[in-house]
Design a protein around this nucleic acid. Structure first.
Lengths: 127, 127
DNA sequence: GTCATTTTGACAATCGTTTTCGTTTTCGGC
DNA sequence: GCCGAAAACGAAAACGATTGTCAAAATGAC
């Protein structure tokens, strides 16, 4: 793994939640790195290919990334306000997805689940 | 609702699954309509604002739309091959999302759930 | 050090989507 | 049927995220 890629991964680790490629680029430039935007994208693609980071899409279609503690299957509870994310598991959901797929004759069933909310800190901040 | 908007809605109804704005534009042009791409986007935005159609993002970040039979909360089981979608419900998932949010102090919890698979027809076609 | 390979980054290109803006259509009153 | 205001349209330009190109720079093997 190259130095640049390490830098991107570390920037992701330091962030508490999901960040877009552009965010990370800005972060890295802000701390003095001379990295290019292209390289950030390449690094993120490589990291997500190797399963080291999770990717998801915002409603606006932007891809956002996060370094995940766990490498097993899990989902995220994401704060709408600050982007902070908690990894959660849901065996019930896994089973349900599998069952619902089978019931309709679908094979090779996968699923995406994201839970959004406002975290305690953020709702306190508003008041 | 204008004529153009009606046309877009009808095109969506005739399609069996999720279609992108560009797909629908192509469909409408193919059947002789002189509609513009801008209008298709506007119609889809209006339809999704009024809750008449469901929107989701593909992994590539493209927005896809579908006319929904039910106007209550539901999710989709989507075929990877042909895009055909089945509306499904999952009380268990709703409860789980709510519970997991509450457990971590999140309020105003929402969630997105999509299930993907290969439908019977499509897996037959491959063989 | 030298050559080959890989990585990098500035820049251009792409693609879905949105905005702009002048034109056309629709519609309520007359 | 005709008029003017308001809404809808569509072509083209603008946009923003992402990807492709390609020459320069870093790295590694010898």
């Amino acid at each position: 793994m190259s130095t640049r890629r390490e830098a991107v991964k570390q920037a992701l680790n330091e962030a508490s939640g999901f960040r877009s490629a552009q965010d990370l680029y800005a972060d890295l430039r802000a701390e003095g790195s001379k990295i290019g935007l292209t390289t950030v994208y390449r690094a993120l693609q490589a990291l997500s290919d190797s399963g080291e980071v999770d990717v998801l899409r915002t409603d606006e279609g932007e891809a956002v990334y996060r370094a995940c503690a766990s490498d097993s299957h899990h989902h995220h509870l994401v704060c709408r306000g600050c982007g902070r994310a908690v990894e959660v598991e849901g065996p019930a959901v896994e089973k349900w997805a599998e069952a619902v797929g089978a019931k309709h004759g679908f094979t090779d069933v996968t699923h995406t689940v994201e839970v959004f909310g406002t975290c305690a800190d953020c709702s306190a901040r508003v008041n």
